[in-house]
Design a protein around this nucleic acid. Structure first.
Lengths: 349, 349
DNA sequence: TTATGTCATGCAATCGATTGCATACACGGA
DNA sequence: TCCGTGTATGCAATCGATTGCATGACATAA
């Protein structure tokens, strides 16, 4: 039942030429070194027989698989699907396919999955997992495997990276809150072992400093995970700590959504009494009330950019200067969850 | 700079044996045919040199790539990431990796991407794209490529499929609404060129019939896409058509969310005046008010089941009887968007 | 001691495409 | 007619691992 695969040899037999001639006739670049007549006959035979090149065999010889690896923490995290579509939008037209693996941000999984990719001979890797410092990926890059990182830099390496301008996003959000009259601004930070968590917290500190906003350490809570539960927990801790604040800048949307839920449970109005802001502008956000003020990150574009960079690395001439860092702009999206500070000004609760 | 890859030949030279001996020593099954002493020396050398098998070369010889293809319509659709994690949870421990492609439900893309997968010599395909009837995937299966479909069956084929019990879900939801006193129940159906859209509409008709609920064709609107805009549009058409109804059973959650938004815009209370139900139980649903009553589908489990089936196909003994259809149970999740019909009973608007 | 059997290991073909080099043929000029 | 040049095509090695078969060593039994 199993239909036999058509190979170059079959076409060679059919057209009475040598396999190498067939190989050349079917290669758009080499084709010109073959008589048109012969090349056409070969082409016709290939189509008639339904020839499909065996990339495995070609890959063994050429050391190119036309496949790249993509490492992300978790595909169920809403930010990643658009990134993947962005990557695919670049790779697919060029004939590349992607093997996607989820690291769950675990070091040993990451190491193991990196081997999974290397064993399959991927031509390059886009690494969007957010563990800080990572010797294995750096080693892979040193071994000559093209690597691009997304949303995080590997310290002291020459691995090109694509990052969103998170600093600017935090800064703009802080300015937005300040302009609404807020002065007592809390921050629910993300996990500090993730680079986004760490980055946004330090950006918050720096932006506050720049804008002469006092940073009360009591108003900073660090979440252990980027989810609603932890956002709610942190907000309740802020409230129960007897702190005075009129706005909460959260390190991502899910923390913000959890915070808003916690406020609702306590009967505190958002944005009437307390403003809340998020980060990422994840999908479906405009279905949730109040609509969340957040910072939009160009996920799709980031994926595209990373993929284009990788393609340049993979096919690079020696003299092609690859930018080491590409920063993509972000955009503040003011919706309903932030509002001018209430008339009476901040009061203790 | 580029470090040379370690091959069997390197280990053979190092240990003074033939490559075939090395190959056998490193194969857990063949290992027993080798003297322990030699096998250990080889093992040690392999580890010392950091040997990693070249799956490309092995694949050429054995025609196994330890890679499978996964075809889905669109990874940014929330139902698919959990399915992929389910698939991965089965494949990864067995040493398989997945190449994921998005078809966007377009026939020519689907055909092209199928070739992308076949060219890379995938050992099998999990097909979760929902176009009805599809000659190319059937042909692939006939050529001997193991294929499993998810959430849709290819007509008149022997391709094993995994489906969720959508009929039962629709039926239960209808019973739920009936028990709340609703008799005039509208249906916002999904696109009829997608199998889920079609399936759920016919399930609705059948369930209504079984439960002696009158089906008013004027109360059935067919959306052209599974999104909020179309849900809203369909609901407004229902309202503006001067129809009388107290509940809307929607073919998926996004249509339902759009419908609820449209109701809100019109100042109609949900569930006070009109109940709305969804389908799928997508993530983040409990953040949206009113919390949507819906049917929970086991996405992760469906992915696992499909992957397990595929693994059986790939490694099947001839006499292994593969179930042609696996139906997974669904679960009604009653939340806040459905309520008893208002006291006065249905009234025209 | 020889025959027989067993088991470990080596040999070489194979998978399918690519590619540097060799060869053969055509054509033009002297 | 002969040589030179160019170009179309063939030849064969190669990529790295797998595997059927051959071989050789050693042991046991006759």
């Amino acid at each position: 039942m199993k239909k036999k695969r058509i190979t170059l040899k079959d076409i060679a037999r059919e057209t009475g030429v040598h396999v190498s001639t067939v190989s050349r006739a079917l290669d758009p670049i080499e084709r010109k070194s073959i008589t048109d007549d012969v090349a056409n006959r070969i082409q016709a035979a290939a189509e008639r027989l339904g020839y499909r090149p065996n990339r495995i065999a070609a890959g063994l010889r050429t050391n190119r698989t036309m496949t790249v690896g993509v490492m992300i923490p978790d595909i169920t995290n809403l930010v990643f699907p658009p990134i993947l579509r962005g990557i695919e939008s670049v790779l697919e037209p060029l004939g590349y396919a992607a093997i996607i693996v989820n690291t769950d941000s675990e070091r040993d999984r990451e190491v193991r999955l990196l081997d999974v990719l290397r064993d399959r001979g991927v031509d390059g890797i886009i690494h969007a997992a957010v563990l800080r410092s990572d010797p294995s990926i750096a080693r892979a890059a040193q071994d000559g495997l093209p690597v691009v990182t997304l949303n995080r830099k590997v310290e002291q390496s020459t691995i090109p990276s694509v990052v969103n301008d998170e600093d600017a996003g935090i800064c703009e959000m802080l300015r937005h809150l300040k302009e609404l009259g807020h002065t007592r601004i809390a921050h629910i930070a993300g996990p500090q072992e993730l680079s986004t968590g760490q980055l946004r917290l330090s950006a918050f500190r720096k932006a506050a400093d720049d804008q002469a906003i006092e940073v009360d350490e009591a108003l900073i809570r660090v979440a252990t995970r980027f989810n609603e539960e932890d956002g709610a927990r942190c907000l309740l801790e802020l409230l129960d700590g007897g702190n005075v604040f009129t706005a909460v800048l959260c390190a991502n949307d899910r923390l913000a959504l959890g915070a808003i839920e916690a406020l609702r449970d306590r009967g505190i109005d958002c944005p009437g009494q307390i403003s809340v802001s998020g980060f990422n502008d994840m999908p479906l956000l405009d279905l949730i009330r109040p609509k969340l003020t957040t910072v939009r990150i160009q996920q799709y574009e980031a994926g595209r950019t990373a993929a284009k960079l990788l393609m340049r690395l993979v096919n690079s001439a020696e003299d092609d200067a690859i930018p080491l860092e590409t920063v993509l702009p972000v955009e503040l999206v003011a919706r309903e969850s932030t509002a001018p500070v209430a008339a009476g000004g901040p009061s203790s609760r």
